[in-house]
Design a protein around this nucleic acid. Structure first.
Length: 273
DNA sequence: CTTGGGACCTGGCTGC
DNA sequence: TGCAGCCAGGTCCCAA
């Protein structure tokens, strides 16, 4: 499941092959891939456009084009971008041919991924919350945003309008590292807890980028390699295993329809004073 | 405004 | 061995 570290890795590893190149041919194999416009319009709009830069915003990948427009891609659950794959398999939804002779393929087993071709990228990403790794994302920013929500902190971390880029896996990891129970109400966390959580979110996302993302399911990097961040997971997807701190079995519960893993002893609902 | 619940999508797993 | 039914979760949409 591509979250911020996975999308950042894809951006970093794809950029050297695509930035400065133009699209020579684009094949869209699945009309439902395109959001707000026809596949044909996107195909025609992309050909001969040069990719000026590649950017990540939240879980979105943004190709900035020479005409000022942007191609945005969201991989959702099972999407991946593969550089020069040996074969274009049945899960390919679009193929992008570049002026340097390379191509990349939008693969997506569950077909939940989407892409947009727009004049201004902001029209797609304008509602997103702050970038957690930005300098401007301070403890105070997080504190202020949490204070407006009387719902479980886990649900708040998953809301892209509040903080952009954190998904199910890294929310669980950040809450464990901060020793905060996922069902704690966001507006009831102490200033100290929010400060710790703020640090943990940033530390865990950075570490995951260093590990090239987490391949718990279908995520692969453009070259087909897997990331290794999941080997460092303490609780995410580790239900029943002993907590690495206290050996108490990791529990699983459901928050906002998301499988949520936590240590009941290290993350008490009522803080131990 | 905030909050909760359903829809989307399909491979893989469980249980009969 | 076959198959129905459920689960995974990022995001949007709608209702209260």
């Amino acid at each position: 499941m591509p979250e911020l570290p996975e999308v950042e890795t894809i951006k970093n590893e794809l950029a050297p092959w695509v930035v400065g190149q133009s699209f020579t041919r684009v094949t869209i194999l699945d009309d439902k891939l395109v959001c707000g416009g026809s596949a044909q319009k996107v195909r025609r709009g992309l050909v001969e456009q040069k990719i000026e830069s590649l950017e990540r915003r939240g879980k979105y990948l943004i190709f900035h084009l020479s005409n000022g427009g942007s191609l945005l891609i969201h991989l959702r659950m099972t999407g991946s971008l593969l550089l020069d794959p040996k074969e274009v398999d049945r899960y390919a939804r679009a193929v992008f041919h570049l002026s340097n002779g390379h191509r990349f393929v939008f693969n997506d087993r569950r077909r939940l991924g989407v892409m947009w071709l727009v004049d201004d990228a902001e029209t797609v990403v304008c509602k997103l919350g702050p970038e957690p790794l930005d300098r401007s994302f301070t403890t105070d920013v997080l504190l202020q945003r949490l204070s407006r929500h009387h719902i479980p902190i886990k649900a708040v971390l998953l809301d892209q309008h509040i903080v952009a880029g954190v998904g199910n896996m890294y929310a669980d990891e950040a809450l464990f590292a901060a020793r905060v129970h996922p069902l704690s109400k966001a507006d009831e966390l102490s200033t100290k807890e929010v400060r710790t959580l703020h640090n943990c979110i940033r530390r865990i996302l950075r570490a995951a980028i260093d590990s090239k993302g987490a391949s718990v399911d279908t995520y692969v990097r453009p070259g087909g390699e897997r990331g290794t961040a999941h080997f460092n997971f303490k609780v995410a997807h580790r239900g029943g295993e002993p907590c690495p701190i206290c050996v108490c079995p990791i529990e699983r519960c459901v928050v906002q329809n998301r499988g949520t893993y936590f240590c009941p002893r290290c993350q008490p609902l009522v803080p131990v004073l």
